[in-house]
């Protein structure tokens, strides 16, 4: 039994502690917004945020996560859309949508670290996030847009 903090809730997970977070999320907790694609950390499809950083859920055994704060796509925003999600809609980024939850989590982590990234910083942070539909150009635009949306809302506060 492992107790984890996921989306600001404590979850007791009855599984072997070598199980990667990805499968605990999907098959035990029913949080299917985090997707499986490569299982080896190559593609970023399963990206979640752990203690503020973008991490591959397929590579994180449960026993490495005790005491850490895990955020998945389901916990990104409690009521309305997170600015990154809104920017994704405004730029009409998604095609099949399968990799996009991971892309969004990686973008959120990037903007937490660098609120106003340039193209090179976006490329560096997002280069591990694969998309077979080819939405990269729009992802770049959406991150710039989210950055300005977050800046505006920060200024208003």
């Amino acid at each position: 039994m492992t107790v984890l903090n996921i989306n600001n809730n404590k979850h007791q997970i009855d599984a072997n502690d070598d199980m990667p977070l990805l499968w605990a999320l999907r098959d035990i907790l029913g949080l299917t917004g985090t997707k499986y694609s490569c299982g080896s950390g190559y593609c970023g499809t399963c990206t979640v945020i752990v203690d503020g950083l973008a991490q591959r859920a397929c590579m994180l055994p449960l026993n490495s996560l005790v005491g850490k704060q895990i955020i998945t796509i389901e916990g990104l925003s409690s009521d309305s859309l997170h600015p990154v999600q809104q920017a994704w809609l405004d730029e009409n980024v998604s095609q099949c949508g399968y990799c996009q939850t991971g892309q969004i989590m990686a973008a959120v982590a990037l903007l937490n670290e660098i609120p106003d990234p340039d193209d090179q910083q976006i490329d560096r942070a997002m280069a591990g996030q694969l998309c077979r539909c080819g939405t990269y150009q729009r992802i770049r635009k959406a991150i710039h847009l989210a950055s300005s949306m977050m800046k505006t809302s920060q200024d208003e506060k």
Binding site: R26, T32, G33, T34, K35, Y36, T72, I73, E74, L76, L81, Q85, W88, L89, N92, V93, S94, G97, Y98, Q100, T101, I104
Partner: peptide, 19 residues
């Protein structure tokens, strides 16, 4: 027109086969 299923895709609600 933006994709009608866009909001579900960005919130992880879209049901794919593996879900």
């Amino acid at each position: 027109v933006p994709l009608l299923n866009g909001p579900d895709m960005v919130t992880g609600k879209t049901l794919f086969g593996s879900d």
